[in-house]
């Protein structure tokens, strides 16, 4: 990131840079919004606002995917996470009646300290990626040209159903088992065991 700033600092000014800077600024803005929304999820005292912040965070992630030309993943992110999963969260919160909770951020317990240090370590590791610099074009057999030709949905489908077929099928079996399990849990009641003494 710093070399990026340096690059724009030293570059000769030309009008086309407006667009380039706009693009970079947009990415940066969306990224910061995502972080702020994530903080809001943790720091908010009312559960409904927490859920809404989480939705905002997911939408920001989808926007980031979109900015990096991964349209398919962006759409899936919105459809599955922001659209389907979070609406169930909101449902349950709205049905149970959301009460504001007393959050005391100031008094630090041992658990909070542990969680904080863990997140802090992760964040420091994340900061190290700043040294990598500008986003690089994708490597491997799916190049930018291939992506332009087939569209990212097709590209993902091709890799999923050829290279990663077994993990994909295993995941689908897992989902099937989970679905059957949910129906069993919701539908059937386990009959009581009859005892002789009764």
């Amino acid at each position: 990131m710093f070399d990026l700033i340096e690059k724009y600092w030293n570059a000769e000014w030309e009008p086309a840079m407006v667009f380039e800077l706009f693009n970079q600024g947009l990415t940066l803005g969306v990224g910061f919004t995502a972080i702020l929304a994530a903080l809001g999820v943790v720091a908010c005292s009312s559960p409904i606002y927490s859920a809404l912040y989480l939705i905002g965070h997911m939408v920001c992630l989808a926007l980031l995917f979109l900015l990096y030309n991964a349209e398919f993943i962006a759409a899936v992110q919105v459809v599955v996470y922001a659209g389907a999963v979070m609406i169930l969260f909101l449902f349950i919160i709205a049905l149970l009646g959301a009460k504001k909770e007393d959050l005391k951020l100031t008094d630090i317990t041992f658990e909070k300290f542990l969680a904080g240090s863990f997140v802090g370590t992760l964040f420091c590791e994340l900061l190290m990626t700043l040294a990598v610099g500008e986003t690089r074009p994708p490597k491997g057999e799916i190049t930018q040209e291939v992506l332009q030709q087939v569209g990212s949905a097709k590209a993902i489908g091709l890799t999923l159903f050829s290279k990663h077929l077994i993990p994909f099928e295993l995941a689908s079996a897992l989902l099937l088992v989970a679905t059957v399990g949910i129906i069993c849990l919701a539908k059937f009641q386990i009959p009581k065991i009859r005892r002789r003494s009764e």
Binding site: F72, A75, I87, G151, K154
Partner: peptide
């Protein structure tokens, strides 16, 4: 876009939030 139909489904599912 290459994902026109998916984008439609995604955005229409976001519209539910306004109603909720």
């Amino acid at each position: 876009t290459n994902i026109g139909l998916l984008l439609f489904l995604a955005m229409s599912s976001m519209g539910i939030y306004g109603i909720v």
